[in-house]
């Protein structure tokens, strides 16, 4: 953008703001229920002030440059606060894009050279487009952070380890077993084996919706790692339909001890530890 154009825009700042506010007021999607017109005005003025202050001849086509940092900061702030207030991303972006109309009409009034006008319009358009995109990006980033935090939380809470007996731990797995999950499960399981000096770990997969060859591979890996530590691993909670899929898919689980229920896995563990559960006989005569 020419320095003269930028100077002109800066001098017409008041006019741009008025035009922009008018445009926004006329817009049928204006959300007066979410933000008062006074607040909207404050937000708009702050953005224009910073934007016009930042612009110079050199940086107007380089939105990536450091100069625009303060503008992006304000945009991010607007995007975040609006998202919290309940604006849709489209409404926030429309707010930014509506600035185009205002600047375009000021440019049109003040530049008589048509080819120059054309070029300046194009540049302003690109600039404001990228500003609009920033609001989108901030919105998505905010969402992503929420998702990441929730993923971490799910991973944390979904792998409790239960000491069912001296030397026997059990770990019920609920939900799909992907490779990231397997890594967490394996790590927790092995660390707990060391801490509790357990020699048998029972992995209960009653809560795993489906076992495909990938999940089976993860299970086999977990069992192998357990054995490397010097403990044995029993897989329990195999539902009949899972047994069917395993065979249909040609998955070989013969190297693994599998049991239908946690109870029978526990019984197996007792046998391995040479323990016996007996019923106490009450002496009726006493």
């Amino acid at each position: 953008m020419k320095a003269s154009t930028i100077k002109m825009l800066q001098s017409k700042k008041e006019q741009i703001i008025e035009l922009w506010m008018e445009n926004q007021m006329e817009d049928p999607t204006l959300r007066e229920d979410l933000m008062s017109n006074e607040d909207l005005r404050v937000q708009s003025i702050e953005l224009i002030d910073t934007l016009l202050h930042t612009l110079n001849e050199g940086n107007s086509t380089q939105v990536e440059s450091q100069d625009f940092e303060p503008v992006f900061e304000i945009l991010a702030g607007i995007s975040l606060s609006r998202a919290r207030q309940g604006y849709t991303p489209r409404e926030t972006a429309t707010f930014i894009f509506s600035l185009k109309d205002a600047i375009f009409s000021v440019l049109g009034e003040n530049i008589s050279d048509l080819s120059l006008l054309n070029q300046e319009l194009l540049e302003v358009s690109k600039l404001i487009d990228s500003l609009g995109i920033v609001t989108f990006e901030t919105f998505i980033q905010g969402r992503e952070e929420v998702i990441l935090r929730q993923t971490d939380e799910i991973a944390e809470i979904s792998t409790p380890i239960i000491r069912v007996w001296d030397g026997i731990i059990a770990l019920p797995i609920i939900g799909t077993l992907d490779s990231a999950r397997t890594q967490i499960v394996m790590e927790n399981l092995l660390v707990e084996i060391v801490n509790s000096e357990s020699s048998i770990a029972i992995l209960d997969i009653s809560g795993v919706p489906a076992v495909d060859s990938l999940v089976a591979q993860h299970l086999i890996k977990t069992v192998s790692a357990t054995r490397l530590m010097g403990a044995e691993c029993i897989i329990s909670g195999i539902r009949p339909e899972i047994a069917q899929t395993i065979v249909h898919l040609g998955i070989d689980l013969s190297s693994i001890i599998t049991k239908a229920t946690l109870a029978s896995a526990l019984r197996q563990a007792f046998t391995m530890l040479q323990l016996e559960v007996t019923k106490v006989r009450k002496d009726k005569k006493v």
Binding site: I193, A225, L228
Partner: peptide, 8 residues
């Protein structure tokens, strides 16, 4: 544990 996981 980390060694066992890595070996597998």
């Amino acid at each position: 544990p980390a060694v066992a996981i890595t070996l597998v």
